[in-house]
Write a protein that binds this DNA or RNA. Structure first.
Lengths: 352, 352
DNA sequence: CGTTAGCACTCATTCTTTCCGAGTGCTAAT
DNA sequence: ATTAGCACTCGGAAAGAATGAGTGCTAACG
């Protein structure tokens, strides 16, 4: 059996219709479409062929046809028409972007929220786990009344700090010394490389400020670890409830409780670093939990070094053209926004 | 009509049963209870009285009774029996607490997640909006290769910082001067008080580093603002779906989309700073969105200064005894945990 | 030979009807 | 004051019938 142009046209029409209505599609409906110029009987024959070829499925004998995963695959790869974003859409998106990404802090959370609002589907965002960061520099700055600020700069140019109380028997000179020792001994080390052994060496050289070493090292390790962690955020689960496939709340709940952040954290491993936009249809997902849903995911970059994945989860019949269009427009806008910040005089900087 | 002991007993039994089953309660079921020693007919009479008194309602003529808001109120204030936490529960709670509150960063998110898991209901956490913070101190620290670290300490003792690129025509001396000017002019000011006027004055005195003033002031204002913001987190919405009152997913969705973070942000205003645990039943909620649900909320304190509210949202027939018991145990554990941190040698400190 | 009209058949869905029983309120007896 | 008894109500489950969208197949058509 070979794939004719007409078969493709019909398959596309079926998928389009099913995506819109979630109802099995009958031959009549297709035949009455303006750009199909045959009778329903002919369509019926073609549909029968397409079923045999594995692109369509029949829920039961006397119902219309529904696309199979293979059908969606073909549709996505060859058949679907580009979705053109309306001006309203792009405008709305820019507006939320401007408004919401104020807080640099939890971009991940913001991004997933925006994307889920944009697509009306659950969306997640993950930062890709970074290479093991190391310490670049320490600073110990006297602050008021017996405290000082401990500043740790890491190899990814993030700076974290903490206010620490100074022991009574310690003055600014001791701090200076400690600072020098820290910078000499610990810079260039990853969290794992800061062993009790290393710590002992620092303590020995630290002089009067030795009692501070545990605190400082502890904090440093903490910072390094939290830097190497990947963050995950999932939003908009409730969007599932308006979809007919989740009329049964049990289903939605099951999907969404299984699909918490743990599972999502493991998703990005799948995507090659090269690919731009990736779509996984139902059974193509390795995660069992997702075997009846599709995932559309893509990478995003912001600021220097910060990058991750955005993904959208939905029924296999989701509007792929629309979702991909919106998603890629979003990631583009996002990068642009961070490439040329609104205030051009702002020197390149990284928060915290 | 007066409230007898027996009436109370019957009302309690009805509410208990309804909380358990979500089904209207009939006279027979109550009469057959071991500690009710009368016939169903008598119970029927009493129930009729209770209905007249406004504590019960009838969905329709030939159905059992259901507690009215007033009924719940009485139940909560006088009738309900304390829920005793099992060892398993307390143990489980401690385990998650230890495991999860590692990250000091987004306690709010963690807390709401844990509480929702504990109660099997949607839960939120809010930090109470703080008093307008002011700048306490600036530090400008030279870092490597033409950059410096801008450190801002606020009046609530949080320290935030950012890496800034140094203009070419600027050396360490200029920075020293700028630092002095900033500390002289801006300390003690709130975000609102840093007007363009003030900014101009700083720029004038800043000398060679004048071009840095906008960046620094911008960041400072940003820090102050984000410090005065209250954070909100909402978790476990999906828990609604297992409740029979939300068999219709539309209902759940409606409630949960209305009830996003905006609405929740406005909740804590309600609670007096004195009260410990507060329960709002259905129509007692001022927020229209919550008129068919109950909210149980209480305060929590952690670390120095950090405090906020935890709340649980659920159907009016939620198990108040259980929820309040778990909630208060949780807040206690939380405070204890932060009062005596696991590592006692850690000096008092505040992150970031 | 591809296309189409016609027709018998299938089967989920919807609508009706019936039936059941939990629950009530009232009355009269205890 | 309590309770047994009884007629009555009414939502909801169960059973049945009607509906109709859709199919597959056959035979006629250009």
């Amino acid at each position: 059996m070979e794939m004719t142009e007409r078969k493709k046209k019909i398959l596309r029409a079926i998928v389009d219709s099913y995506i819109r209505t979630a109802e099995p599609v009958g031959s009549k409906a297709i035949a009455s479409l303006p750009d199909i110029a045959t009778s329903s009987a002919t369509v019926r024959n073609e549909m029968s062929d397409l079923t045999e070829m594995g692109y369509l499925e029949q829920p039961h004998t006397s119902a219309g046809r529904v696309p199979s995963p293979a059908g969606y695959r073909l549709y996505i790869d060859e058949l679907m028409q580009d979705y053109r974003l309306s001006v309203d859409e792009t405008q709305a998106m820019h507006q939320t972007l401007e408004g919401k990404i104020r807080e640099f802090d939890d971009v991940i959370a913001q991004v997933s929220k925006i994307v889920s609002k944009m697509t009306n589907l659950p969306a997640y965002a993950v930062t890709s786990p970074k290479v093991q960061p190391t310490v670049k520099k320490f600073e110990l700055i006297m602050a008021e009344s017996g405290t000082f600020i401990l500043v740790v700069m890491t190899s990814n140019d993030t700076v974290k700090n903490r206010l620490v109380r100074l022991p009574v028997d310690c003055d600014e000179q001791d701090l200076k010394l400690l600072s020098a020792v820290l910078n000499a001994t610990l810079t260039g080390l990853t969290a794992d490389e800061i062993t009790p052994d290393v710590m002992a060496r620092v303590t020995r050289s630290a002089g009067a400020a030795a009692s501070l070493v545990p605190v400082i090292v502890d904090y440093t390790v903490h910072v390094l670890q939290s830097e190497s962690h990947s963050e995950v955020s999932l939003s908009g689960q409730m969007n599932l409830l308006s979809l007919p496939e989740y009329r049964d709340p049990q289903k939605a709940q099951q999907l969404m409780t299984q699909l918490d952040e743990d599972v999502i954290g493991n998703l990005p491993a799948v995507i090659g670093p090269d690919s731009k936009m990736q779509i996984l249809i139902g059974p193509e997902n390795i995660a069992q939990e997702l075997k009846d849903t599709s995932v559309v995911m893509t990478r995003f970059d912001i600021g220097d070094g910060m990058q991750g994945m955005i993904g959208v989860v939905g029924p296999t019949r989701m509007d792929y053209a629309q979702v991909t269009a919106r998603l890629s427009y979003f990631t583009e806008s996002l990068s642009k926004m961070f490439a040329k910040p609104e205030k051009p005089e702002l020197p390149e900087a990284k928060e915290e």
